[in-house]
């Protein structure tokens, strides 16, 4: 049985924890609140937390007055295609790096680490020149190439850590049972690696969904713009920042994603713990 002061201290700590948690999430809540406010309430003094007369007008305006749906579709295409492509390549690569005793694997690992940690700005210009040289400037394919360069090292690195966590005896047992290496990979290793694959997918999707610099430099056409540059270009660098609309756009860009991540939370946390830190 704990003493009274101890219990009080515990209560205080709990209160403090919750206060902190709420403070940390406050910007999210403020974004939601603003998105549903009418222009008049936006500038009300004192500011209101919950909208008095919630309205969907900001959302309607964003969808009607800007190409939000086009930007969102582009972002979705680029992020999905890049993620799937990178997952396939990185799964094979990581498996090869971990369970085949390849000659020169240490060199590969070092090079990979270097790639993983390279500053984007350093290779931005050469990568851009290369993509333009391929005739892919200003296109979603060009962005997919660029985003592959951003996500592949990361994905390989993360996956490598996950594959390393799979006990080698499992594959060995399958091989002894007469399975070929590929069969063993598909039937035994892959299922084990699935959580790692999902985690990697979540993060590489996030990287593509977020990316600003490449999209800014590479895309001129309004119809191939992605969400970050589209929103910046039309709603922020415009002639009047209407915060209601900006927050509505921000909400639409982030909330569906947050909900999906909440659902996949286990994998997200795993990504932090296993791959990112150990690897």
């Amino acid at each position: 049985m704990k003493s009274l002061p101890m219990r009080l201290a515990g209560l205080a700590a709990t209160g403090f924890t919750w206060l902190l948690v709420l403070a940390v999430t406050f910007p999210l809540l403020w974004m939601l609140g603003t998105a549903f406010k009418r222009p008049t309430e936006l500038f009300a003094k004192p500011p209101t937390f919950f909208p008095h007369a919630p309205t969907l007008q900001n959302f309607v305006d964003v969808l009607e007055q800007t190409k939000f749906t086009i930007y969102a579709t582009n972002s979705l295409i680029v992020a999905t295609v890049t993620t799937l492509f990178v997952l396939v390549v990185a799964t094979l690569g990581a498996h090869a790096m971990v369970s085949f005793k390849l000659m020169g694997r240490h060199v590969v690992a070092r090079a990979l680490l270097l790639c993983y940690m390279l500053p984007t700005t350093a290779v931005l210009i050469p990568i851009y020149l290369m993509i333009a040289g391929l005739g892919l400037a200003n296109s979603l394919s060009g962005l997919i190439v660029a985003y592959t360069s951003l996500t592949l090292p990361f994905a390989l690195w993360l996956m490598r850590a996950f594959f390393a966590g799979i006990p080698p005896e499992i594959e060995a047992a399958a091989l002894i049972d007469g399975a070929s290496r590929l069969r063993a990979f598909v039937d035994v290793v892959l299922p084990q690696a699935l959580p790692g694959i999902v985690t990697t997918g979540v993060f590489s999707f996030l990287i593509c969904w977020n990316e600003y610099l490449y999209s800014l430099v590479m895309i001129n056409d309004d119809r191939t713009r992605t969400l970050p540059t589209g929103i910046m270009g039309t709603l922020v660098n415009g002639y009047a920042i209407e915060w209601g609309m900006v927050m509505a756009a921000a909400t639409m860009m982030s909330v569906p994603l947050l909900l999906v991540f909440l659902f996949l939370q286990r994998y997200v946390v795993q990504g932090f713990g296993a791959g990112a830190v150990k690897g």
Binding site: Y128, A132, G133, A137, N138, V217
Partner: peptide, 9 residues
């Protein structure tokens, strides 16, 4: 970017 990439309007 457009000029460097030969993608001039």
């Amino acid at each position: 970017a457009a000029y460097a990439g030969g993608d001039v309007p």
